[in-house]
Write a protein that binds this DNA or RNA. Structure first.
Lengths: 333, 333
DNA sequence: CTGAAAGCGCTTACAG
DNA sequence: CTGAAAGCGCTTACAG
């Protein structure tokens, strides 16, 4: 069964395909009666446009690519959801790609999105494909970086204020009287890792404290690393009195390690985390958390990209948005 | 800056575009020397294929559409992740769409996927767009239903054995001595809702018990409904002694209601749930849960769809897979 | 083994 | 206001 084309509509309505196209695209210069005739024909024939043909010819697909790091991380689910919803409102469709924090997959996806002629891209970059991203920019395909950011590249970006979030949490812990604080955080090649580490450092040094190397565990932003790192910290001759976990997945792994040892929070070990997933407040005791405004970031990222798509004449430089996070103090600290 | 085309490659290599196309598509009947020349030209020119043009001409886009109910539900994150990964292995790209359980959005997405000429579709259907789904089947675009299923439609499907899962959990609760069991479950217009309810009924009647109407709360599979339903049950003059929550979101809402009232699990009220998200085992006490093999379902759904795409000659009828879930007994029951 | 030509289904100047 | 024609970038019979 073959799909109906503009040609079928044209012959049914007794007009040319140009006229059908004009009606379909809502151009004003069409006789109202002819327009009605065409619309009727569309119904009668059961016509649906072919987006491939339209995109090939018009050089616009009304499609945007979204590359996230790890769709299993609730932060990215929320982000994807917000972006997709916002895009739909403006008539755009989202190609969701999951790089799994793997630069090779990320590269594959970037190439694939280029071949599919997406109008623009929103990406939480691994940091390893800067040249490819620059190629997009050079081709006039706008990019918005979210969640994390590669420096020295001419794209918009919108992220959480990671440094401030980490600073607030660690300062709060210090004020609670915990003087030795361990850090479990992800790789330092991305801004999320770097900035959260910086916030931790600054909070300590503002209190005149020097971070102890053995209290800092750097790995990946995943559960396995969190679990392992927590065990390493707790195995120390002088383990820290409090722990700051750098994201929700690391926190999950860390908490499991604490549970396994039968340690009590906060009596034996205080615990705070970046991100505020549902389980943070459900946990007993409820976990002190740095809440990101992920929903807002998603909405703004989509709107920013769509603005660029609709206003190619606006040659203003990159716009970098940083959104403060919120410290939610609970009973774990 | 304009993209390079097959034409640029051809003129650089001094051959026709037909030959370039043959090389690009890996046809055998090309002189090895010419082939090398073309490949060299591709590099030199910096050529990337245009998927729109290719798709328009070849009637295949190597793209599949995935419509899920609610990407914020971890079940669907896992499902999407598994499907996307599997698809990539076979050279397919996934268009992820989130219907938000809204039939209108679902319809929009179905239409959009049709216009984009996806090769096939994987869908967790709302149940309200049966005709549209049938249209796809009639057009020769295969559909695989996941997680839930519309009856009487000629598509493959793969789901959890919802009835068995619910039956196992409720039977376990009864065996623990809880004789009155409340049910919080989603709408009955989809198989997940129906089958979990049926499992609940059968478990009770197999013990010679009759379900009490006031102990059954039917709503949507979301947190709000779970919270509200739990409160209604607990406000009953004779509240049930144990509660079965129909999915992880309802369970989250239900648990929050229990916490708010300061009730202890399982001493004041026993609690079990469908789905086994991370927080179920983290909770204190850990929650008894029905674990779905979601990862496996995703992989098999993608493989089944791709099988259909690669074997259009196989005219065998729909294949319906049902995968048993697993009861994980913890301390909440 | 290779090339010229047709055509996938549209949009977009160009005439009139 | 409308139509005929070109062309977006490919693949695919058809010749040779």
């Amino acid at each position: 069964m073959k799909g109906k084309t503009i040609k079928d509509v044209a012959s049914y309505a007794g007009v040319s395909i140009s006229t059908v196209s004009r009606v379909l695209n809502g151009y004003q210069n069409v006789n109202p009666e002819v327009k009605a005739l065409v619309l009727e024909a569309v119904e009668a024939v059961g016509y649906t446009p072919n987006a491939l043909a339209r995109g090939l010819r018009s050089q616009s697909t009304k499609t945007i690519g979204l590359i996230v790091n790890n769709i299993l991380n609730p932060i990215y689910s929320v982000l994807s959801h917000a972006i997709e919803n916002t895009a739909r409102k403006y008539g755009y469709h989202v190609f969701l790609c999951n790089s799994g924090a793997n630069p090779e997959y990320e590269l594959e996806y970037l190439e694939s999105l280029y071949e599919k002629k997406v109008d623009g891209i929103i990406i939480a970059p691994t940091g390893r494909n800067k040249e490819k991203m620059e190629a997009f920019v050079n081709y006039g395909i706008p990019i918005v970086q979210v969640d994390r950011r590669i420096e020295g590249i001419e794209t918009d970006s919108i992220l959480t204020n990671n440094e401030q979030g980490a600073y607030d949490l660690v300062t709060h812990m210090l004020n609670q009287g915990y003087s030795s604080i361990g850090l479990i955080v992800g790789i330092q090649s991305v801004t999320t890792g770097m900035d959260r580490m910086t916030g931790y450092y600054n909070a300590l040094s503002d209190k005149g404290l020097t971070p102890q190397t053995e209290h800092i565990k750097v790995g990946h932003f995943d559960e396995e690393t969190g679990y392992k790192a927590m065990n390493e910290l707790l195995d120390l001759p002088n383990p820290p009195r409090a722990i700051f976990a750098g994201n929700n997945l690391m926190a999950m792994g860390g908490i499991k390690a604490i549970h396994e040892r039968g340690l009590r929070i906060p009596d034996d070990i205080a615990f705070g985390m970046f991100d505020d997933p549902d389980w943070a407040q459900l946990h007993n005791p409820a976990i002190t958390a740095v809440r990101q405004h992920t929903q807002q970031i998603g909405v703004e990222a989509a709107e920013q990209l769509i603005y660029r798509l609709k206003h190619p004449e606006d040659r203003s430089g990159p716009r970098h948005r940083v959104i403060d996070s919120e410290l939610v103090i609970r009973n774990s600290t």
